[in-house]
Computed example of a mutant assay.
Amino acid sequence: MNGDKRRILHIDDDPAITRMMHARLAQHDYVVHQLNDPTCWRGALVNGEYRVVLLDIEMPQLNGLEVLQQIKQFDIGVAVIMFTGKLKMNLVFEALGYGAEYCLFKPAEDLRPLLDALEASFYRIDHWRAAAAYAARQLRIEQKTTELKTKLRASQSNSTAISGQMPAGFDWTKFETYLVLRGAISPQMLELARTALARSVKPIGQIALQGGYLSVADLMQVLQHQADTQALFGATAVELGLLTREQVLELLEKQKHLSTTPQDAIITTGAMTPANLNRYLAEYLREMESSSSWSVPSPEAIDPHPTATASSPSHTA
């Protein structure tokens, strides 16, 4: 234990007692600072940053029990060892009840009880500090974990959350091939998403889905029927009786403020959920960063009808 940790404030109105205690404890590597006016305890405690206080109970200027209560109200972490020259157990119990760590009788001819009390007090202080530091670290970890979880939830709710982090020259076509190879999306659903993207139907379809105009099943019906008829998305939805002309006009007005991206097309067609798409995109980017030579086969090399891949939109785990 270094000298900084073994500093003690001794409060007693008798200078002879504080000088004697200073000399005796110095032999055991304690640094004792003397204070003979108990009314000045606050300034001494603040300026000296003491963690252990030796305090006399009977003092004319201010009763030691009152000083004890004030110290504990000021900083409950300060260890206080009380001294009394009167053999009155009620004083002992009262001091302990106010938060004193120990109450010893003086004159202290045998220094061992005080040394034991000091060692135990400093040990507890070190233990409390370590526990507080550990609790603070755990709190920071919990706060960081919560922050990361919040960011993750935000990225999962936004289909384009990761797209802004893509490196320059990112090839979306290769990523789509990667999705097929991983079984995350079927070639049929990918083709449907590409068709939707080519016809710029994503915004109106996504708005219709998010706004409650259409269900996922309705949206799929519109897109599939549109692929057969080559009609516009809005006209197809009206023809199927899923939207009114007024609703189509509302969606087209909202569409002006949106842009179409490949990932939006995949999500809008129900081929993948935003969470799954972002998860696979993050994995793909990590693989690209870990190996500059990493590549996937060209789209032409993939069997367009793999037997192990389901074409249902629900197969997106």
Rank of each mutant, 00 (worst) to 15 (best):
T261I: 05
K86M: 13
L240I: 09
H10T: 05
S312N: 06
R129A: 14
T177V: 15
V216A: 15
F93G: 10
A308R: 09
S290Y: 03
A198M: 10
S186H: 12
I57C: 11
M288L: 15
G99Q: 06
R7K: 11
K256H: 12
W128I: 15
N36V: 11
K72A: 07
D13Q: 02
S159P: 12
A168S: 15
Y280W: 09
V248A: 04
S312F: 14
L55R: 02
G97V: 14
Y280N: 10
C103D: 00
L148Q: 10
A282V: 14
P304L: 06
E101W: 08
G64D: 08
A168V: 07
L197F: 11
E191F: 09
P107W: 00
S295R: 08
F105M: 15
L242R: 05
D228P: 03
M59P: 01
G64N: 03
L35H: 01
V67Y: 02
L139D: 14
V216F: 05
A227M: 14
A136Y: 07
L249D: 10
Y98H: 15
I17G: 02
L35Q: 07
Y30V: 06
A120G: 00
P262T: 03
H127F: 13
E101K: 11
V238P: 06
A217Q: 11
P38T: 03
I207R: 13
R7G: 08
R140P: 06
V216Y: 11
G99Y: 00
T268M: 12
E94F: 03
G43D: 15
W294E: 02
S186I: 04
L96R: 02
M272K: 01
T160C: 10
D171H: 06
P299Q: 09
S295H: 06
L111M: 13
K72R: 13
Q224N: 13
V46N: 12
R194P: 04
D303Y: 01
P187W: 05
P203A: 11
L277R: 01
A301G: 04
Q210G: 01
L87T: 10
W41C: 01
T145S: 13
T150I: 09
R199L: 08
V248N: 03
L55G: 04
Q143L: 15
L197A: 07
P113V: 01
L249S: 12
R140F: 00
Y30Q: 00
R24T: 15
D4H: 12
A198Y: 09
E58N: 11
Q143H: 14
L232G: 15
D12S: 01
D228M: 12
A79Y: 05
D218K: 02
R112D: 00
L219K: 01
T309W: 04
A217S: 12
V238D: 02
S121L: 03
V248Y: 00
E287I: 09
T307E: 15
T18K: 01
Q34F: 00
E49T: 09
